[in-house]
Design a protein around this nucleic acid. Sequence first.
DNA 1: CTACATACATAAGAAAATTATATATACTCA
DNA 2: TGAGTATATATAATTTTCTTATGTATGTAG
Lengths: 113, 113
Amino acid sequence: MGSSNGMLKGSLQTIMLKLLQENGRMYGYEITQKVKEITKGDIKLTEGAIYPSLHKMEAEGLLITHTEMVENRVRKYYLLTEEGKVEVRNKLKEAESFIGNLQLLLNMKPAVS
Amino acid sequence: MGSSNGMLKGSLQTIMLKLLQENGRMYGYEITQKVKEITKGDIKLTEGAIYPSLHKMEAEGLLITHTEMVENRVRKYYLLTEEGKVEVRNKLKEAESFIGNLQLLLNMKPAVS
DNA sequence: CTACATACATAAGAAAATTATATATACTCA
DNA sequence: TGAGTATATATAATTTTCTTATGTATGTAG
């Protein structure tokens, strides 16, 4: 079934911010599809997780939005603000450090000599 | 200051189970010190996080305990049950997969050709 | 007319953490 | 003697963040 998330807890924001950094602008549904594609179906983001998270980041000033009608459907695009661009870099550093530490703790990486 | 946790969310159990797998038996405070040591102070587990988590894993049958008095202080040692040993392996596979996916999403790993 | 894909939103509840507090012993430092 | 730190465990209150479920709406495939 692939979709054994459970460890996703603290990294949703980081993932979405990084995708926005790379793609310039994205809408919610597009993000879920992109993540599914990149992880080959392993990680499936749910609407109940992404939309509140996007709203929160918008409220915090990390994202701005603009809405478009495409094929008679509403699309709400999200883009990074300047503050958001700074935040991505911080989050990525944090993630890098965290992954390194996790690999050390779980013995997935040789100890540094 | 190093101690920017925040991404620890879903991995506390995995970390503690892995340490127990490696060390045979450990007590709560010892786990916090070991994690601090291995991560050079980056990750500081709090009591409010570890004790409820250990209690839960004991209730689930993953751990058993025995208490000892050392230097006039109580120590509650935790050990893996057979079920717990199986669980560590599952959690480690999950963690490996998750870390791989996260590195892909965050562009911390070259795309597989 | 049913199901699925696209697209957003939100409410209810659960899970897992943070923060704060409490207990208790022992050592150090002023 | 009193304060602070280290060792050691526990729990309550709160917050954050997620899952699950539901609702709206359009378009296509069968």
